[in-house]
Design a protein around this nucleic acid. Structure first.
Ligand code: SF4
Ligand code: SF4
Lengths: 142, 142
DNA sequence: CTTTAATCAGACAAATAAATCTGATTATAG
DNA sequence: CTATAATCAGATTTATTTGTCTGATTAAAG
């Protein structure tokens, strides 16, 4: 069981945070994978897909790799989530009931609705440039 | 993608809420499945496992089925989650970083830690007898 | 120009989760 | 006592997610 996001999405978030934090520009998939201790081929695939979404760019050949496609002051975590897992979870129920709808609230609607929104806001309110320090410290501790 | 809980857990939560809400005592798996619009064999298996956890009881043979093992005033949603998915998610990171630890916080630790606790509280603070009405209304709308 | 180290595309494999099936057992009701 | 309708246990199937492999392409550096 993952929490909220798929592994794909978690790795995507970690990789993009890492790219933003180390400020070295182009970074190889191999390097990213080693530093985050996640499977290289997998994170490589994920970053490939994020090039299509315009979040990272890739450079082929020797000394190639991935880098942010935009200023980290413009990228939010929610952008990465939207690109990988989509945003449907922010319309779904913790209990798995269908048709989430304030007019047909299920038992937890009031409480869950608030938490769901706060989770969304958490991912939407800061740009990833503000996470550099903490990302570096966390990565160092992996 | 499910939200937080596995399908197994979602169905378990729904089934137990349903048993508490309709107050008919023994209810067949077939009936539960039809009313919740979820697979009968699957919910049956899940309820079987919840008998082991002491949350429901089962009665075999004709007119058999499942019923709550305890007074609904004593059952909390967190009990069902603990029995099916376990509670590890309440120690894990949204970003999937390993070693969640306040001394090695990752970028979202402060915010996510709070939301995670509030989610736990949401499942822990009320007993399922308080959900009857809303459950019935939600089930009717499925 | 050749070697090397990287992405890229797409197939493939393994693991996990979700759902179904089968046969046995059990209890009720006629 | 028999027919029926249910749980139960466990195997099996299917779907999805996660992870790996292969071969082609690309670009840098000697
Ligand atoms: S009404 Fe609330 S609890 Fe029910 S499905 Fe919608 S968000 Fe979830
Ligand atoms: S420190 Fe916070 S964000 Fe990081 S893993 Fe722990 S809970 Fe998650």
């Amino acid at each position: 069981m993952t929490v909220i996001f798929s592994k794909k999405c978690e790795y995507g978030l970690q990789a993009v945070l890492y790219l933003a934090a180390n400020e070295r520009g182009i970074e190889s998939a191999d390097d990213i994978a080693k530093n985050l201790n996640i499977p290289k081929e997998f994170v490589s695939k994920i970053l490939q897909s994020l090039t299509v979404s315009g979040i990272v760019i890739s450079k082929k050949g020797k000394a190639g790799g991935f880098a942010l496609a935009q200023d980290p002051k413009k990228i939010k975590l929610i952008d990465i989530v939207a690109a990988i897992d989509g945003l449907t979870m922010f319309n779904n129920c913790v209990l798995g009931f269908p048709n989430c709808n304030p007019t047909k609230p299920c038992p937890l609607h009031d409480k869950w609705g608030v938490l769901r929104t706060q989770t969304y806001n958490m991912l939407n309110e800061d740009t990833i440039d503000t996470f550099k320090e903490k990302t570096l410290r966390k990565v160092a501790a992996i």
